[in-house]
């Protein structure tokens, strides 16, 4: 097990014990169960039979799984990208605003309402007889109800809405610590507004951008409720596939195997991202101290 060196002897190990126990019981144990189930034979009415097989992983080769995976990646990438594009300016504005506390409050308020209820609220707004259609009809802008729901667009919209605060908060806290005189320095040195942001702001808030990306992408990649409630067949995602295998097909090993794939893909992705970030933060020193230059420029002449 993950017994760190010297855990038993040092007080530090003792202090860490509660969280170690917590993690072992509630994180590692379920994970171990899923790993184990993915290698077992499905029981007739759900559950598993204890005879090891690789059938579940063979079943993944099925084209349905591939299609759902591609759709999941498209939705997750798209929704994350849109979330980030909204969250960065929001975080920037909040960090520079005089009313930081009010704005922070506004970002937090949605958390006071249950997640599912907020999804139903979107259904009430976007439904065929929802507020938006009522408004459009009464204004005469459309002749009949527009079908806003049950497609990929609706899934992305509600996902962006749901995870926006998770992206805004880490971005806000990083940008808040950013020294804005650096942007003035960049402008002073000839950078336009956009290139000051690209060359100075973004590299320096990279940690926050990464956190916001992970906080958004990972839960969206595993989304279940949103595509279930506002999505259609085309926006079926891996989360729904797992749920269906578990509850409808009753193929627990297959559900476990799909979970394993998601876990492995996201873990690998996160590790690669962290590494890329780490190396490029430390790297970029490929310029040696340059050799003494000739008298080519005005400075040489002035000397």
């Amino acid at each position: 097990m993950t017994r760190l060196p010297g855990t038993a002897k040092t007080p530090g190990g003792l202090y860490a014990a509660p969280s170690l126990v917590w993690l072992s019981v509630f994180f590692l144990a379920p994970l171990a169960i899923i790993v184990a189930y993915s290698f077992l034979t499905p029981g007739a009415l759900g559950g598993v039979e204890w005879s090891p097989t690789l059938d579940a992983y063979r079943a993944i080769a099925n084209p349905t799984f591939g299609k759902v995976t591609v759709n999941t990646i498209i939705v997750a990438m798209g929704a994350t990208a849109i979330t980030m594009l909204i969250a960065i300016p929001c975080g920037y504005y909040m960090a520079r605003s005089e009313h930081q506390n009010i704005l922070l409050m506004l970002v937090m308020i949605p958390f006071w309402t249950n997640f599912l209820i907020r999804i139903y609220a979107w259904i009430a707004i976007l439904g065929n007889e929802g507020f938006l259609n009522d408004l459009l009809l009464s204004l005469g802008l459309v002749d009949q109800s527009v079908r806003f729901l049950y497609n990929r667009g609706a899934v992305m919209l509600v996902l962006v809405y749901t995870y926006l605060p998770y992206a805004i908060l880490p971005l806000y806290s990083t940008i808040d610590k950013f020294d804005f005189s650096l942007l003035e320095a960049a402008r002073d040195l000839g950078a336009s507004k956009m290139s000051a942001i690209n060359r100075v702001l973004l590299p320096n808030i990279r940690g926050g951008v990464l956190t916001a990306f992970l906080f958004t992408f990972i839960p969206i990649f595993g989304a279940y409720a949103v595509p279930l409630l506002v999505g259609g067949t085309e926006s079926y995602m891996l989360g729904n596939l797992i749920a269906d295998e578990l509850t409808k097909s009753r193929d627990w090993p297959l559900a476990s195997a799909i979970s394993m794939v998601i876990t492995l893909v996201t873990t690998l992705g996160v590790l690669l991202l962290l590494r890329a970030n780490g190396t490029s933060v430390l790297g970029g020193d490929d310029h040696e101290a340059a050799e003494p230059a000739g008298e080519a420029d005005a400075l040489g002449a002035a000397r």
């Binding site: 005189s181 650096l182 320095a185 402008r187 040195l189 950078a191 990279r206 933060v281 970029g284 310029h287």
Partner: peptide, 24 residues
């Protein structure tokens, strides 16, 4: 705008870009 003026500034807190080397 500041980037179009033929003036440059040495800032009080230096305002060096922390993510770039001295050279950069």
């Amino acid at each position: 705008p500041p980037d179009a003026r033929r003036v440059n500034t040495v800032f009080q807190n230096y305002a060096l870009f922390p993510h770039l080397s001295v050279f950069e």
